[in-house]
Computed example of a mutant assay.
Amino acid sequence: MDNYPLLNIFWTMLELFLWILWFFLLFKIITDIFRSHDMSGWAKAGWMVLVILLPLIGVLVYVIVRGKSMGQRDVEQARQSEAAFKQYIREAAGPSAGGGGSHVDDLAKLADLKASGAISEEEYQKAKDKLLV
């Protein structure tokens, strides 16, 4: 280890980190170019040529010109993903096949009817047994 001192190890780690960061930013911009619906095909092709042929200048110009809308597209995509996930959860846990609410809601309604005196204990038990079958 005499010919590779500790400071060189830290410098190499910093360079590796910066390369990874650079590629992350480059791929983020390329995916944003294709995801953007407000650009025409020619504009997308122009940005791609600029980013690929002159990467440093192309990435900096893209971030300066379209950075704010890039963030808005990220937020919108996250919102759509969350809404789709919540919809999937609702469908998976969904209402019972008995029509309308879940068993818990139906049992709560029955308990309220029994407490208010609208149905008797016997009617309550029959309806509860029917729900739980």
Rank of each mutant, 00 (worst) to 15 (best):
W47R: 05
Y124S: 01
R73F: 04
K44D: 04
W42P: 09
L14H: 11
Y124C: 00
N3S: 13
Q87V: 02
I20A: 15
Y4H: 11
K126V: 13
A45C: 07
I119D: 01
A43T: 14
D32V: 04
L54R: 04
L53H: 05
W19G: 07
L7V: 15
D74G: 15
L56C: 01
G41F: 09
G100W: 04
V75I: 15
H103W: 07
L110Q: 00
G94S: 03
T31H: 09
G41V: 08
I64R: 14
L14M: 13
R73H: 03
V49D: 02
I29L: 03
Q87N: 11
G117V: 03
A92C: 08
G99N: 08
D105R: 09
R66P: 04
L54N: 02
H37Y: 08
R35C: 02
N8Y: 10
Y62L: 02
D32N: 13
K109V: 12
I64W: 14
A111T: 06
K44V: 02
W19F: 11
A97I: 13
P95Q: 14
G117H: 00
L56W: 12
E76G: 10
S102A: 04
I119W: 01
R66H: 14
K44W: 03
G58W: 00
V65N: 05
M39W: 12
R79E: 10
A97P: 03
D2S: 14
L7T: 15
Y4M: 03
E121D: 15
L110I: 00
Y62P: 00
A45E: 10
G99R: 08
